[in-house]
Design a protein around this nucleic acid. Sequence first.
DNA 1: TGACAGTTGTTATAATATAACATAACATCC
DNA 2: GGATGTTATGTTATATTATAACAACTGTCA
Lengths: 165, 165
Amino acid sequence: MQSTAFSPHDHSHCISSAINHAQSLCAQRGVRLTPVRQRVLELVWRSHQPIGAYELLAALAKEGFNSAPPTVYRALEFLSEQGLLHKLDSINAYVGCCNPETPHQGHFLLCQVCNKAQELESQYINLALKVSADQHGFEIQRHTIEIIGTCKECIDKPSLSELTP
Amino acid sequence: MQSTAFSPHDHSHCISSAINHAQSLCAQRGVRLTPVRQRVLELVWRSHQPIGAYELLAALAKEGFNSAPPTVYRALEFLSEQGLLHKLDSINAYVGCCNPETPHQGHFLLCQVCNKAQELESQYINLALKVSADQHGFEIQRHTIEIIGTCKECIDKPSLSELTP
DNA sequence: TGACAGTTGTTATAATATAACATAACATCC
DNA sequence: GGATGTTATGTTATATTATAACAACTGTCA
Ligand SMILES: [Zn+2]
Ligand SMILES: [Zn+2]
Ligand SMILES: [Zn+2]
Ligand SMILES: [Zn+2]
């Protein structure tokens, strides 16, 4: 079992790694990771729990950033375009992407107990989707794949795992 | 290639079949398919294009039904609980289910050109999801699987297929 | 009849997201 | 450096989607 969002880990490493990746990627691509964009990304990465736009907005407001909805939605749009985060449509919330170098559509496990999301990298799922689409002559552009349930940690220790980041 | 939402077909058959199924299922289950619930289901089945709650509400209002949001959301909740329709989270819209006898989570192909949705019944997809979840010790409760792209009809005849129901 | 569960009506509001236009910051070229 | 075009941000208002809370009605059954 590899390390996941669900299991205890050094989350500060997740954060610094995500920000470092974001900075170098944006530099490579000639796009600007402005203060508000970087701060939104940091806020998204505060935990593995997807966070809502208005929750981000409240956090930004506390820190003296501009706090009208377009501010955060623009930052989210930028970060999403750069593959630095994903939106989870089933809960209208946003989560950081661990692998932004190669643009992709994510597949997610979403735990209803601890509210954390784990992105999957399953070629099986992609293949299964492709086979189904091909059977209908359907050309895939993007997808929303969200598996909602209970993570191993929350199955094993029902009341503790909500606390780890 | 089987008949799908995307290809031309006798859609009145889809509608009457859906309503008949709904009536007998509700009778079996001892739940009430009241006039507003049945009308919402008929409106959802007017086409294979998923329809939004407020669009339904406007249609109900024209017909003299009560036209406050709770009316339509309650009907949608009931119909969803009975497995008679599905919500597509990626577009906040609702589409009829062809196979309401056995409760299930749908997988959907969603064409961005003609806006029609086709539900899939792919055991491959379910298996791929289960394998990924099992690898993480994750227990699946429900899922959102929506594949967005272009259907065969819209690839073949880019400007006509928007018109069929 | 009265009690009860389920359903619908009604008003208000929450939660999520975008339109539209003004201003500011940055880059580039002369 | 100043003119100019582009990108980013500020600001106000509004659109879209969904739910809370409570009152009134309807059917069922003792
Ligand atoms: Zn972490
Ligand atoms: Zn969990
Ligand atoms: Zn049809
Ligand atoms: Zn199409």
